[in-house]
């Protein structure tokens, strides 16, 4: 593992971190494509196992960290790659050419966070309805918590609640 981390640090300027035995590297967005090709072909990480993002609003520098989980079955190693992104409508390179499983992961990233994947063959919403506005997992999107109906506010909530006409 150490040799892989030092190779990544040398070639792509990746900052390694470790917590409780779990290894992760922080990588800049422009090196992402080259790094993932290197991970697949040179270092034997056959699977892109997970892809998601963390939103650090209201900080905007960086606002998002896109987290990639790579798994090597032959070597039994896991590596997490974090890519910090700046700004409110960022975009990132699509890894569908390198790993086929990135297709739906990146669609979910677009749906939930609004992070576009450039060169993605089919970028549309996957979990929310097609006409939904907003990206739910961002921190500035509200939970849309419905107020609980107690006896003191029973009638006023009842009036606001939609009911079927028939």
């Amino acid at each position: 593992m150490k040799s892989i981390l030092s190779a990544l640090q040398k070639n792509f300027d990746a900052q390694p971190q470790e917590y409780q035995g779990l290894h992760s590297v922080i990588l800049e967005a422009e090196h992402l494509m080259a790094c993932s090709i290197a991970l697949k072909e040179t270092h034997g990480f056959e699977m892109l196992n997970g892809l998601s993002a963390v939103d650090y609003w209201p900080e905007t520098e960086p606002r998002f960290h896109v987290v990639y989980q790579f798994l090597s079955i032959t070597k039994n190693l896991r590596l997490e790659v974090r890519v910090p992104l700046v700004g409110n409508t960022p975009s990132i390179d699509s890894l569908t050419e390198v790993y086929a499983s990135a297709n739906w992961f990146e669609r979910e990233l677009w749906d939930m966070f609004g992070i576009k994947a450039r060169n993605h063959p089919d970028l549309r919403r996957i979990l929310m309805p097609a006409d939904w506005e907003g990206h739910p997992l961002r921190k500035d999107y509200p939970l849309d918590y419905e107020e609980v109906q107690f006896s003191f506010n029973f009638e006023e909530i009842d009036q606001r609640k939609p009911r079927p006409s028939e």
Partner: peptide, 19 residues
């Protein structure tokens, strides 16, 4: 009534849609 999930994604009670 929407159950455990009081959020954007779940209809809060199917009686909003059908009797």
């Amino acid at each position: 009534c929407g159950g455990v999930f009081n959020n954007y994604a779940i209809v809060q009670g199917v009686d909003e849609i059908v009797p």
